[in-house]
Amino acid sequence: MTTPTAVRPFILGQIKLIAAQQKKRLVPLKDDLPLLESGLDSLCIAIIVASLDDELGLDPFAAGDVDMPVTVGDFIHLYENGAAAS
């Protein structure tokens, strides 16, 4: 089980890992940065979501009624809330 505080560094690590794998150049990550302006495309984001499901066992989208995350902060909060609820 993942604690909410462990989620943030893990996600930031995954973002950097997948970006490197997909040869995308990341801009410095900040909470108010729109996710799609970080250098990630939607395929990268889909891969990150899949790897977070595999590695953390968290899939906050499974509920179906979550808003699409706009910023890096939205994305992280989605998983922090998921970890807190699990």
Partner: peptide, 11 residues
């Protein structure tokens, strides 16, 4: 649907 999900992730 994927185009639209991407659009909804844009500010």
């Amino acid at each position: 649907p994927s185009h639209w999900r991407r659009a909804l992730m844009s500010p």
